[in-house]
Amino acid sequence: MMAPMTADMPSGRRPRRIGIARIGVYAFLLSSAAFFLLPLWIMVTTSLKPMAEVWEGNILALPAQFTVEPWIRAWSEACTGLECNGISVGFWNSVRILIPSLVLSILAGAVNGYALSFWRVRGANLLFGILLAGAFIPYQVFLYPLVRLFSQAGIYNSLACIVIVHVVFGMPIMTLLFRNFYASLPVELFNAARIDGGGFWTIFTHVLLPMSTPIIVVATILQVTGIWNDFIFGLTFAGRENLPMTVQLNNIVNSTQGERAYNIDMAATILTALVPLAVYFLSGRWFVRGIAAGAVKG
């Protein structure tokens, strides 16, 4: 069984010496990093070139004439319809959608996962099976019935509507994530708490939630990415006043018949990704310490 860590350290084995093995580790990691960064290289160099250079088609070359104008235009000047204010327009809308959706979907996933893995509720696992199967259907198929449903409920095209949609569509994966994480915890932990007289919520808030840091970090990474990059739900359910940033991004990069400024496209894409990237980077601290901080002697 997996037991909580007791040391404030990564679990990996200590390197015994700086030798071939060490060089091998770095060689692997650095070449992997190169593979991951390759498309980013193309995007960054393209975003720093004037269009005349982009048309020449030397996609891997460094800019001969360096310019940051595409970045400025992408953020605050590029046209996305009648307005020419770049992608900055929808930034706060995206934040307003992200935060409640993130908190509620993780909470729902944690509670569901906990109830499914530690409590024998009849029929619950069948529900979970259906939920999991539902995760495989392209959600575009669900758009029409959901639009009608929300419209009858009177909340179509509102912030509440988009938040509900994110919670609902995040539910299969969030539930699975927490369910499987809790399933790998020692059952003795739970039994001991039960014997101490802990009820459903007491055990959840006092015993399990504090131990859940690593999985909450993973859940956050997943949901921040999914919700922040969502386009079709935001477009369909959020309403005109709450349109997320990705709608502006799509307007810049996805015009069918319009001329394309690839340098601005690339800059806009990187700028839009900064929030999830920051979350990835900052989440790192909890990959290590969170576990130790939440450790419970079992």
């Binding site: 990691l29 980013l40 990474i221 894409t269 990704a273 990835y280």
Partner: peptide, 19 residues
């Protein structure tokens, strides 16, 4: 490194796919 490995996940495929 972790951020580098994760970053493709953060970006819209419309443009990374073009790259």
């Amino acid at each position: 490194l972790r951020t580098v490995f994760l970053f493709p996940h953060a970006m819209s495929l419309v443009v990374t796919g073009l790259a």
